Amino acid sequence: MQNALAVVTVVVVGLLVGVEFAVAVFVNPILDRLPNDGGLAARSDGARVLGKVMPFWYIGSVVLGAIWAAMAWGDTGAGLVATATALLVLSVLMSIAVLVPINSRVAQWSHDSVPEDWKQQIGRWDRFHYVRVGVIVAAFVLLVVGIA
């Protein structure tokens, strides 16, 4: 049971890392290069769509990590899993405190209602998102090492 939980947790967190990494490194930079601020509508739509899905994915990752850490307590690697889970909790707290408020505003934007400082707000979101990606990558690595 614990091995299956470990595999499921690593897969769920690994997919989360892949999506967030792709958004940070590929998707958003491509959208930002579209002419005439064409990426604005795509970012707004992405904020709405991913804003509905990602909370469940992040919280689910924390729950899976916490259950795995509890089941493995005392075993080799349990400390790594617990640390990874703490990092996932940190990523959720970062999201709630910094990223979600910006994302909620972006989700409401249209070409008619965009604020003047929209590029600065998106830039701030991107910078914090890079940090969050680093945190979840570290958590993922710890989970993978914790399997061994």
Rank of each mutant, 00 (worst) to 15 (best):
M1E: 11
A4N: 03
A4T: 14
L5F: 08
V7R: 11
V7S: 11
T9Q: 10
T9N: 13
V10S: 09
G14V: 11
L15Y: 00
L15W: 05
V17S: 06
A22K: 03
A24M: 07
V25M: 13
F26Y: 12
N28M: 15
P29A: 03
I30M: 14
L31F: 12
D32L: 13
D32T: 12
D32E: 14
D32P: 01
N36I: 01
D37K: 13
G38V: 05
G38R: 06
G38L: 07
G39H: 00
L40C: 01
A42W: 07
R43H: 09
S44I: 03
G46K: 08
A47D: 09
V49Y: 13
V49N: 03
V49K: 13
G51A: 01
K52C: 04
V53S: 08
V53F: 13
F56Q: 03
I59K: 00
G60Y: 03
G60A: 12
S61W: 06
V62R: 01
V62Y: 00
V63K: 05
L64C: 07
L64M: 12
L64Q: 01
L64I: 07
G65K: 00
G65W: 01
I67R: 05
I67M: 10
W68Q: 13
W68K: 01
W68F: 09
A69W: 10
A69C: 08
A69R: 07
M71T: 12
W73P: 08
G74K: 09
G74H: 06
G77E: 09
A78R: 09
G79N: 10
L80V: 03
L80Y: 04
T83F: 12
A84N: 05
A84V: 05
T85W: 09
A86F: 11
L87P: 07
L88W: 08
V89F: 05
S91R: 06
V92D: 02
L93D: 00
L93F: 04
S95D: 09
I96C: 09
I96T: 11
A97K: 12
A97V: 10
V100I: 15
V100G: 08
V100T: 14
P101S: 02
I102M: 13
I102G: 01
R105W: 07
V106S: 10
V114R: 12
V114M: 08
V114C: 02
V114F: 06
P115D: 06
P115N: 04
E116L: 11
D117P: 02
W118N: 05
W118F: 15
W118L: 02
K119W: 03
Q120C: 02
Q121F: 08
Q121C: 00
R124E: 12
D126T: 15
F128E: 04
Y130S: 12
V131Y: 08
V131L: 15
V131M: 13
R132P: 02
R132T: 04
V133C: 00
G134E: 06
V135C: 04
V137A: 05
F140H: 04
L142W: 10
L142C: 08
V145W: 13
V145L: 15
G146N: 08
I147Q: 12
I147M: 15
A148R: 14
